[in-house]
């Protein structure tokens, strides 16, 4: 008799467990994908500079030697405009080199014009019209910011605009600890 009762209870229990599991899944933001590239070396890539810059663009070799940030942006990207004043203040402090990938500009002047207007916080900037650089970093949208350690290994990825809070609480402590290694 006990076995028969169990037979009726088990499907209900299984249903409840599944319902809770799926309900939790529904609360997650599907655009926040975990990066598979954390703790892997930066893929070998080379991007030309954007128009009007005398630096050499951006290549994977630029990430070897010191801890650096990489910011993927575009003049078309509204969140990047929100993030920009923070990046400018970051440049002023000089705490860490910030490189940029100028992603998918509608024309070669759009990125340089935008940086002229808003200010240019980047040490090096690569032009990425066909997403080669963005795909190398597994980028799905702009802005995204990566922390790369001295050996050129990706250590952290921040999706969306960086804020002073994220910088103070997460990224700067990480940069300091990576530098100490």
């Amino acid at each position: 008799m006990m076995a028969r009762r169990l037979l009726f209870i088990i499907p209900g229990v299984v249903f409840c467990i599944l319902a809770i599991y799926f309900a939790v899944g529904l609360t997650k933001d599907p655009s926040q994908l975990p990066s598979v590239l954390i703790n892997t070396p930066v893929e070998i890539f080379q991007l030309p500079p954007i128009k009007g810059r005398d630096t050499h663009g951006l290549a994977s070799t630029d990430f070897v030697g010191e801890v650096a940030l990489l910011n993927v942006f575009g003049s078309w990207c509204i969140s990047c405009k929100i993030e920009h004043p923070f990046l400018m203040s970051l440049k002023q402090t000089g705490d860490v080199p910030l490189h940029g990938i100028d992603w998918r500009e509608p024309d070669p002047d759009a990125g340089p014009d935008w940086l002229k207007r808003e200010g240019d916080p980047y040490t090096l900037v690569g032009d990425d019209p066909d997403s080669k650089g963005a795909i190398a970093f597994g980028v799905t949208g702009a802005p995204e910011t990566f922390v790369v350690d001295k050996k050129g290994i990706i250590r952290y990825k921040h999706v969306g605009p960086m804020s002073p809070e994220v910088w103070k609480n997460v990224i700067y402590p990480l940069v300091l600890s990576l530098r100490a290694q």
């Binding site: 599907p30 655009s31 998918r104 066909d130 997403s131 080669k132 795909i135 799905t140 949208g141």
Partner: peptide
């Protein structure tokens, strides 16, 4: 990766186009 329930073959997103290429 932009419109997650479409394949890159179906999607008009820029990133999908670059992935197709």
């Amino acid at each position: 990766l932009v419109c997650q329930n479409q394949s890159i073959d179906d999607s008009d997103a820029q990133l999908a186009k670059d992935l197709r290429l």
